Simulated assay, not measured.
Amino acid sequence: MRSLDLTAVTWRKSSYSNQDGGECVEVSDDFAGVVVPVRDSKNPHGPILAFAADGWSSFVSAVKDGSLGV
């Protein structure tokens, strides 16, 4: 996979994130249909994970329908 320039992406906090500031996941929609960058909002300068868009979509669907058992 080629390197992505993530320095200017727009981040949004997941609607599933804790309202008290904990367990916050941020995602970027700047590469729609290709990859989904994900980071921990409590550590914005820390590591960023990039998931294939179809894999991320499957994960989000599994979270929403409760099939992950978490």
Results as ranks from 00 to 15, higher is better:
Ile48Glu: 00
Trp56Cys: 06
Asp29Leu: 03
Ser41Ile: 10
Phe59His: 13
Asn43Gln: 10
Asp29Gly: 10
Ser58Tyr: 02
Asp54Ile: 11
Val38Ile: 12
Ala32His: 15
Gly21Trp: 03
Phe59Tyr: 09
Val38Pro: 01
Gly21Glu: 06
Phe59Arg: 15
Ala50Gln: 02
Pro37Cys: 05
Asp40Ala: 08
Gly55His: 05
Gln19Lys: 07
Val27Thr: 08
Asn18Tyr: 01
Ala52Lys: 15
Val35His: 01
Cys24Leu: 11
Asp54Ser: 09
Val36Ile: 15
Ser41Ala: 13
Phe59Cys: 04
Gly33His: 06
Glu26Cys: 05
Ser41His: 14
Pro37Asn: 11
Asp40Val: 10
Tyr16Cys: 03
Val38Phe: 01
Asn43Tyr: 04
Cys24Asp: 00
Ser28His: 03
Ile48Phe: 01
Val36Lys: 04
Asp54Leu: 14
Val38Ala: 08
Gly46Lys: 14
Pro37His: 10
Trp56Val: 05
Ala50Met: 14
Lys42Ser: 09
Pro47Tyr: 00
Cys24Pro: 00
Leu49Phe: 06
Glu23Phe: 02
Asp40Tyr: 00
Glu23Asp: 04
Gln19Met: 12
Lys42Gln: 11
Val25Ser: 03
Gln19Glu: 02
Ser58Lys: 14
Tyr16Lys: 04
Val35Met: 07
Leu49Thr: 04
Asp40Asn: 09
Ser28Ala: 05
Val27Asn: 04
Ser28Val: 11
Ser41Lys: 15
Phe51Met: 05
Gly55Phe: 06
Ser17Ala: 00
Arg39Met: 01
Gly21Lys: 09
Arg39Pro: 08
Tyr16Pro: 08
Phe51Trp: 11
Gln19Asn: 07
Ser57Thr: 13
Asp29Phe: 00
Phe51Leu: 12
His45Trp: 06
Pro44Thr: 07
Ser17His: 00
Ser41Val: 06
Pro44Ile: 12
Ala52Trp: 09
Phe51Val: 11
Phe51Cys: 02
Tyr16Trp: 03
Phe51Asn: 02
Gly33Val: 07
Gly22Thr: 12
Ala50Cys: 15
Tyr16Phe: 03
Asn18Ser: 12
Asp20Leu: 13
Asp54Gln: 14
Ile48Arg: 01
Pro47Leu: 04
His45Ala: 01
Cys24Lys: 00
Ser41Leu: 12
Gly22Gln: 03
Asp40Pro: 10
Val36Thr: 06
Asn43Gly: 09
Val25Thr: 03
Val35Phe: 01
Pro44Val: 09
Gln19Ser: 10
Ser57Ile: 12
Trp56Leu: 10
Gly46Tyr: 09
Phe51Arg: 05
Asn18Asp: 06
Val25Arg: 08
Pro37Leu: 08
Phe51Gly: 02
Tyr16Gln: 08
Ser58Gln: 12
Val38Thr: 07
Pro47Ala: 11
Trp56Tyr: 04
Lys42Ala: 14
Pro37Tyr: 05
Ala52Ser: 13
Asp54Trp: 14
Ala50Ile: 13
Tyr16Ser: 07
Val34Thr: 12
Glu23Val: 02
Lys42Trp: 00
Asp30Ser: 07
Tyr16Leu: 12
Ala50Gly: 01
Asp40Thr: 01
Trp56Arg: 03
Asp20Met: 11
Asp20Glu: 14
Gly55Ala: 15
Asp54Phe: 12
Lys42Leu: 12
Asp30Tyr: 02
Ser17Ile: 04
Ala32Ser: 15
Gly55Ser: 14
Lys42Asp: 04
Gly22Asp: 09
Gly33Phe: 04
His45Val: 03
Ala32Trp: 15
Val34Glu: 13
Arg39Leu: 02
Arg39Asn: 03
Ser57Gly: 11
Asp54Glu: 14
Asp30Asn: 04
Gly55Val: 15
